[in-house]
Design a protein around this nucleic acid. Structure first.
Lengths: 338, 338
DNA sequence: CGGACGACGTTATACGTACAACTTGCAGCG
DNA sequence: CGCTGCAAGTTGTACGTATAACGTCGTCCG
């Protein structure tokens, strides 16, 4: 574990650069104009970079008596609406050097949880979705204990991973559609370079390759309803025999596929069987209701946290994929069932 | 402003209780067994309560070298899925005395934002949705600057409020449906005691009362698709002439209404016009697409943050409702249009 | 030639907490 | 009576940072 040596402080940087701690603070705080020579400032910045110095926020906050952080209390995280609220608030906050911390108001979290308890912040560890690739580099900068969600278990990061058994979900989906008699498949894939999506493609191809006479095409789409609609519409109007089964990387893409089918005059499931993955509320809002793979998000979160706790206490985290189940609804049927 | 006197510290509590600061720390940290007399401990606790003492988390974190806080990086807040992940993680974390802070990975928040910047925490202020009523009492305990979203502007809290012009949204909806010729209305209302919902009911009633020959019934439903389905199904099968227009408090409820209509064999919009409020992705995933009121969530967030900044800098925050627009789609038509 | 001033730093301190190490008074025991 | 031991605290210190207040040296001007 890299947790051996303690994190460098501003004094360590000072020592390395041959100046006082105060000088480091001045330079790194951009208050050095006319107080520190350019050359010295350069030396300090270099030393800081070399040591991987990050200021201790607790100390800074204590010193400044302010945190430049704000709490956003939202009813729950269940709608796109408050995602937008967060985004807007965070943007303005960032412009003013503020941060925003989310507090989703308690819903089974515990009895009368104190909102402020969740905001003691500055971090001991990180749980990261593999879809949040953008943030990862910044995270690896620190030497924080890290747990990855749905990431390559053999990944180069060496981080602990907690995965849903997506492969099995895809396997169940393929088996179901094959059993119904489908042979011509279209895979509506998310265009995000993430292990969790790559594994879907790989496993679907593997399952179908095992059955002679099957055909698999792939269409790539952005992870939004309307992006998916466009991609599906294009793919479904391509020349050649039309696929009878459409396997979507998640429920949102499936919703887009429904819109595409509607536009092309295709009936679901008569002309086209559609499957999703996630089992969002959206899945049963569609008509017909969507056959999809149910993921237990809460369990996923719990396992992720447990794994992180294990790492923090330098225990061995459990290594076991979380099972998923196919929920068969009205969007799948035998092909050409008129 | 209540920001006059600075927050009490453990030393203030000590002075008030006639003991040393260390004793306060022992008592409040539950480490006093066999070190402090029960009577003294009692006195300390009382003094703490009286002064409204809250430990300074920055100082505590600095002292302990640990924050018992963990970061959850999610791709975005746009799906129910990660809401579940958060809930599960937060539950386990709470059991271990940990907090969870959300970092929705950047999507237009700014160029290469540092995830950790958002986690310096301990708060200077709070932005709260009026729907998050549960958390409010805890918040009022502190004397933090508070901005309420969509709350009663004449509310007793005296907090700054930033509101969407929901009343105008309802007005536009009513006008649209009345112009189409509807006279028998059903209001599918959220069963959450919050100003933002109360105002919908009030304004809808007001609009319809102005037109002779109109009729308004109300059904109350939990804020979920399936809860709404049940409520709508019941209300629509009630005796008497069936309503021709169904006004829903938000898009999710509208999705439930679609399911109810499907079960009852009612065609939308032929037999029943339906409207929503929010304009979620869900709205265009429905068939036919939903006529709904578009709320600019990001702008809402921005205004909320700007208002909070104004309060923090003791400026006068702008007091102006955020405009909304009715988006007419396929779910509304003249009644009995066969 | 004296001293004022700017450039370049340093020293010292405070923020509020948790806890290790020390003190004090009193009971009990050999 | 002297000593141990325990209850009931207190004193002192460190966590890492930002910044006010202070040197020190050379230069330039009157």
């Amino acid at each position: 574990m890299a947790a051996g040596s303690t994190r460098p402080t501003s004094r360590d940087v000072a020592r390395a650069a041959g100046v006082s701690q105060a000088a480091v603070s001045l330079v790194l705080g951009d208050k050095w104009r006319g107080r520190v020579a350019e050359a010295t400032a350069q030396r300090v910045r270099e030393a800081a970079r070399e040591l991987g110095y990050r200021p201790n926020l607790a100390a800074r906050n204590l010193r400044l008596g302010s945190t430049r952080t704000v709490l956003l209390v939202v009813p729950a995280l269940t709608t796109e609406f408050f995602a937008g609220v967060y985004t807007g608030a965070a943007r303005v906050a960032a412009d003013h050097g503020f941060g925003v911390v989310l507090y989703p108001s308690p819903e089974g979290i515990g009895p009368a949880r104190d909102p402020f308890a969740s905001a003691q912040a500055a971090l001991d560890g990180v749980i990261a979705s593999s879809m949040a690739a953008e943030a990862l580099t910044a995270i690896r900068g620190d030497q924080l204990p890290l747990v990855m969600l749905d990431s390559d278990p053999a990944g180069g990061t060496g981080a602990t991973t907690v995965n849903l058994d997506i492969r099995d979900g895809v396997r169940q989906t393929a088996r179901h559609l094959l059993a119904l008699g489908h042979r011509r498949f279209l895979h509506l894939a998310a265009d995000i370079p993430s292990w969790t999506f790559e594994v879907r493609a790989r496993e679907l191809a593997r399952c179908l390759a095992a059955v002679p006479g099957t055909e698999l095409r792939t269409a790539s789409a952005p992870l939004s309803i309307d992006g998916a609609r466009t991609a599906a519409e294009t793919a479904l109007s391509a020349p050649g025999p039309r696929p009878t089964a459409l396997v979507c990387d998640d429920d949102k893409l499936a919703a887009g596929a429904y819109k595409a089918a509607r536009r092309l005059g295709l009936r679901i499931p008569g002309d086209l069987s559609v499957t999703g993955l996630d089992d969002l509320a959206l899945a049963t809002a569609l008509d017909p209701e969507l056959t999809t793979v149910r993921l237990d998000a809460e369990l996923f979160g719990e396992r992720g946290m447990q794994a992180l706790l294990a790492v923090l206490e330098s225990r061995e985290p459990a290594r076991e994929d979380i099972p998923v189940t196919l929920v068969v609804r009205g969007s799948t049927a035998p092909p050409n069932a008129f």
